[in-house]
Write a protein that binds this DNA or RNA. Structure first.
Lengths: 136, 136
DNA sequence: TTTAGACTCATACTAAAGTACCAAATGACT
DNA sequence: AGTCATTTGGTACTTTAGTATGAGTCTAAA
């Protein structure tokens, strides 16, 4: 936010200076009116692009935030969620077990729990549902 | 593409007209130079914003557009891709077979082909890879 | 100090998924 | 006419995945 204010203030100052300069140049007859207008047009064209880019960057990222509330609502525990992440990464139960230092049996238990909680029949369906619920 | 050209041409024409008008207004002394410049500045500011939005809409949505070239590069056939979509929707081989009016054997063949082409060991990994390659 | 929830693991299954081959029909291209 | 890629399917087999059930540990709360 502080940065934005700084950028905008310096922008305004620069523009004011530019106006004064262009006015002086016109009065002293060193510059044609068309060129002045063209320069201003180009300048503001890019200012518009710049401002627009700055303001657009923020409302775009939030598409990727995970819904923590939903996870709690579904009563998905920490371990279960870790297993879900493993599934999303394309790991087998054995691989997930190795990564979490657990036995494959334990992973199977968690997977079964997840399938019930997500109302899915398969891990791939669990992924699809988890994505639609934005919990992954 | 045709639309873009049309918009730009009409934009250029409008600008040329505006330039002529502003010059006339200045010569006839009906308008002050500062006002003219201010109008031009504001106009181009918004033109810049508009153009930017137009041109940004394409590189932004493409986060969700599938990479057809990649699909061809990987030599994934139509049927194989349809099966991949079925997997992404969380369906079992049998369910995919029913939806495509094929036997489960055939689906298995396609799945195996997909796994080779996507260099994956499991269907879940295939999904993860397919997503990272933006082909799904 | 019970109690409930989360975490852990095991056994014994059944059901999917996946592999390795093979084979035949089709359609486009040479 | 012959080649090539695609599509389709089958058999036999191995490997994962998933279910059902039971049980032990630990911790925080009632």
């Amino acid at each position: 936010m502080k940065k934005t204010i700084l950028i905008f203030s310096s922008l305004i100052i620069a523009l004011l200076l530019f106006f004064q300069l262009s006015k002086y140049a016109l009065i002293s007859g060193n510059m044609k009116i068309e060129i002045t207008i063209a320069i201003i047009a180009i300048l503001f064209f890019f200012v518009g692009i710049y401002i627009n880019k700055k303001s657009l960057r923020k409302p775009l990222n939030p598409n990727y935030s995970i819904d923590q509330k939903k996870i709690q609502e579904l009563e998905i525990t920490t371990r279960e969620y870790e297993v879900l992440e493993g599934i999303a990464s394309g790991f087998s139960n054995k691989e997930i077990a190795e990564k979490l230092f657990l036995s494959e049996s334990t992973i199977k238990t968690y997977v079964s729990n997840l399938l019930v909680k997500l109302n899915a029949k398969r891990r791939t369906q669990a992924l699809q549902i988890a994505k639609s619920l934005q919990i992954i």
